[in-house]
């Protein structure tokens, strides 16, 4: 256990890098998800087809292959990415492709009457999406988005293989210098577990926050509180 204490600053640095990669990858993932997901639903083939190919390619191949490709193969085209950039790009694009299907599915499953009502009110397609369809789809998107984010967090461990000094990378370094394999790996397993648990909590908070009948829920809660007071 003393190796863990002695090298705590290194682990802390690794943890911060892991969080940084998760946050940046998550942000990119959201942008990619909405761009590709909406393009996939477009009426225009010019948008729909490239989005479809992007989604199938990034979902159909391994994240590690994508990351290695960006890190090792891209320099041959004269583009040398910083390891962190390559890692975040691969994570964001890969998980974004999965999340794009979430966006597509959630929007496609909206009740048709909503779109029809918008058309009847003379809303143009952009306004329709922005004001009606997307806000309504968010509650349906949140649970699968939460899963994608937990996946993304766990997959950040792969960035250690392209030399980004995240939690796993730090652990490997400490392991090779101290040889205290068990303590180090148990420690980072627990750290990863705590992080993904936090993400789950965050998702369920957001789910409650964005629930469609939030007002009804708060009313209910107030009532319950009153009942409790009455019972006491």
């Amino acid at each position: 256990m003393d190796a863990v204490i002695q090298y705590a600053p290194l682990l802390w640095q690794g943890l911060l890098t892991t969080i940084l990669v998760t946050v940046m990858g998550g942000a990119l993932c959201l942008v990619v998800a909405f761009t590709a997901g909406l393009a996939r639903l477009s009426r225009h083939r010019i948008l729909r087809w490239p989005a479809g190919i992007f989604i199938e390619v990034f979902r159909g191949t391994s994240l590690l292959v994508q990351m290695f490709w960006l890190f090792f193969a891209l320099p041959f085209f004269g583009i040398q990415l910083h390891p962190l950039t390559a890692a975040v790009l691969a994570l964001g694009l890969n998980e974004g492709a999965y999340a794009a299907e979430v966006v597509r599915g959630a929007i496609a499953s909206r009740a048709k009457g909503q779109t029809e009502a918008c058309i009847a009110l003379g809303m143009d397609p952009a306004l329709r999406l922005r004001r009606i369809i997307i806000p309504q789809s968010i509650p349906a998107m949140l649970p699968p988005f939460g899963n994608v984010m937990v996946d993304l967090l766990k997959n950040t461990s792969l960035v250690s293989l392209v030399t980004v000094a995240d939690l796993t990378f730090s652990a490997q370094m400490i392991r090779s210098t101290t040889g205290q394999t068990t303590a180090i790996f148990i420690t980072i397993l627990v750290m990863y577990f705590a992080l993904s648990y936090l993400l789950t909590l965050l998702t369920s908070w957001l789910e409650r926050r964005f629930a469609l009948d939030r007002k009804a829920l708060t009313l209910q809660r107030k009532e319950n509180a009153l009942m409790k007071v009455g019972a006491a």
Binding site: L161, T182, F185, I188, Y192
Partner: peptide
């Protein structure tokens, strides 16, 4: 829940480096 909350890579490292000990 624990296995679902931790990365496959780290699990693989544990099995590969820790268990032989």
């Amino acid at each position: 829940v624990f296995v679902r909350g931790t990365p496959l890579l780290v699990q693989a490292y544990v099995a590969f480096f820790v268990l032989p000990a």
